[in-house]
Design a protein around this nucleic acid. Structure first.
Lengths: 128, 128
DNA sequence: GTAGGCTGTGGACCATGGTCCACAGTCAAG
DNA sequence: CTTGACTGTGGACCATGGTCCACAGCCTAC
């Protein structure tokens, strides 16, 4: 046990292990990979190749979940990640994207509040 | 022009006229009709039959639009209308449906407000 | 060698609210 | 008789975020 591989760089893992590690289904991982949100490596086996996920992809996955919680769509997250990978995602640009999303969320809240008001009016017998 | 048909009961009209009258596309009218939201009559022509829409369907359409504005889905509207047609939509039941929808809207607003808060935190550099 | 578990691919399917398209019958005017 | 405008039907398609399925290759254990 002394000086075991705990500190060494982890091998990229196959999809099953990765999916379990991040708490998602394999299908979701494949879906994100197809969309370019996650980056997979390759491990060949006979005529076939298996996708592998390095450790940084777990952080990437966590980041994706965070963005989803902030209200970003997978497409938007994909675009942001691509910008980040290209190095064109400056702090200013990041702030811009957050502010845009904030505005769109405020609009949706506003729309729902209108519906809420109309519903309350109906319930109280007021003319809507 | 004296005593023209202005006051007489209007003939049911074909879909084009109806759609234009209510300000929707023919496809939308067909879609609603398929879902049972609108009720069409029949007018036969050769081997075929054309759908006809009586005047009450215009009010029905307006009602549907109102419900949509209140946040009801077409399916929910369909269920409500079916209850109404069967006469089982009491005032109490109506109030129940409105309150249910009000609660679901409040939940959605709450969820969006959480996202809003997280976004603001991110923008202000606070830990989210 | 064969069973079982892992993997990949391609595609269908869910709800939501429609839109659009092709193909075909109907009907009136010219 | 033909053209044009209208109608119907059935189905494909859009975005969204996946899920599920079959078929098939890989690899290990028995």
């Amino acid at each position: 046990m002394v000086h075991s591989q705990v500190t060494s760089a982890q091998e990229p893992v196959l999809i099953g292990e990765f999916a379990q590690a991040v708490g998602a289904s394999k299908d979701t991982v494949r879906f994100y990979t197809r969309l370019g949100l996650l980056q997979a490596g390759q491990r060949s086996a006979g005529q076939r190749a298996y996708a592998t996920y390095a450790e940084d992809q777990a952080e990437r996955f966590a980041f994706i979940e965070q963005c989803k919680a902030l209200g970003f769509t997978l497409q938007e997250i994909g675009e942001g990640l691509r910008e980040r990978d290209e190095g064109s995602l400056t702090a200013l640009r990041q702030q811009e994207l957050l502010e845009q999303k904030l505005r769109s969320i405020e609009e949706r809240i506003e729309a729902l509040r209108h519906a809420e008001g109309r519903l309350r009016a109906k319930l109280e017998g007021r003319p809507s």
